[in-house]
């Protein structure tokens, strides 16, 4: 009986026409644009022996680029967690002049082409730039070294944390905070024991998204990094370098490593988002 009603409801869902054509088109387009080209990457690596593959992805210059890419992405994502939470909090909880403009401006890193962000940040932070000229006498160099990579990645990742935390903060129930205060909690206790746990999943999702984006980022970083081998050369630039030397197999090997990492991160983000939905009780 249950099976029968299940079958019927299944059939009822297909009252709408167009399932075959839309799914067919989706799968064809997905295969042509994404899946087949990505499989070309995997097949190309099979032209390498295992030893050649390992050599290509663990050379000293490549290893240094992993350290820089992952280290800078981690620092930038952590900075974004702190300041992203701060910006989201201020935008949701307080009123001040120009709030709407600031809110819209948060998305600037999504809208501004990365190359523009790159040359602009470089112009600001170089020794003669608006900001750089005050930092240089203090012995602080933010452009043309790994610091610049971190700065560019903070810029790129900022909207991710703000935009994942903001809606959760907006939906947070004030009653819980009132209850905490009535029960004698200080404001800080209310924040750390009541508010923070409810936004933690969103914060973690935003962190993972900012981190994933930072690892693959190319356009904004290459202008400000200085691109010195072993010091300030990011992994995507290693791929470009190998391509320019017609080392297609080597470029592909490094690209496969990056692809696997981004796929794992994508699965982690999906799991985090599912957790967040369960946490907030919102419909999937």
């Amino acid at each position: 009986m249950a099976l029968f009603s299940l079958a019927r409801s299944h059939k009822a869902a297909r009252v709408l026409p167009g399932f075959n054509i839309t799914l067919g088109f989706t799968l064809t387009y997905l295969s042509l644009i994404v899946l087949i080209p990505l499989s070309a990457l995997i097949f190309k690596t099979f032209t390498l022996t295992w030893d050649q593959f390992v050599e290509a992805v663990t050379g000293p210059r490549v290893m240094a680029s992993y350290r820089l890419t992952f280290g800078a992405s981690l620092i930038a994502a952590l900075v974004n967690v702190v300041f992203g939470l701060l910006v989201a909090w201020v935008l949701v909880r307080y009123n001040f002049f120009g709030k709407k403009v600031i809110d819209a401006l948060v998305d600037l890193p999504f809208a501004l082409p990365t190359a523009v962000a790159g040359i602009s940040l470089t112009a600001l932070l170089a020794g003669n730039g608006w900001v750089g000229q005050y930092l240089e006498p203090l012995g602080i160099q933010l452009a043309f070294n790994p610091n610049g990579v971190v700065i560019a990645l903070i810029f790129i990742g900022l909207p991710f944390v703000v935009r994942t935390v903001q809606p959760v903060l907006e939906d947070a129930e004030k009653e819980l905070e009132e209850a905490a205060t009535c029960l004698g909690a200080t404001r800080w206790q209310t924040f750390s024991r009541v508010i923070f746990p409810s936004i933690a999943p969103a914060l973690l999702t935003g962190f993972a998204m900012a981190f994933a984006r930072a690892i693959g980022e190319y356009g904004s970083v290459i202008f400000i990094a200085g691109n010195m081998p072993m010091v300030s050369e990011i992994t995507p630039l290693i791929i470009i370098g190998k391509l320019e030397q017609y080392d297609y197999a080597g470029a592909t090997a490094v690209a496969v490593v990056m692809l696997v990492i981004s796929f794992v991160l994508l699965l982690v983000i999906n799991a985090l988002q599912a957790w967040q939905r369960r946490h907030t009780g919102a419909p999937a």
Partner: peptide, 9 residues
Amino acid sequence: LPFSVSPVV
């Protein structure tokens, strides 16, 4: 998937 693939890749 394309969101998380590096543009260079």
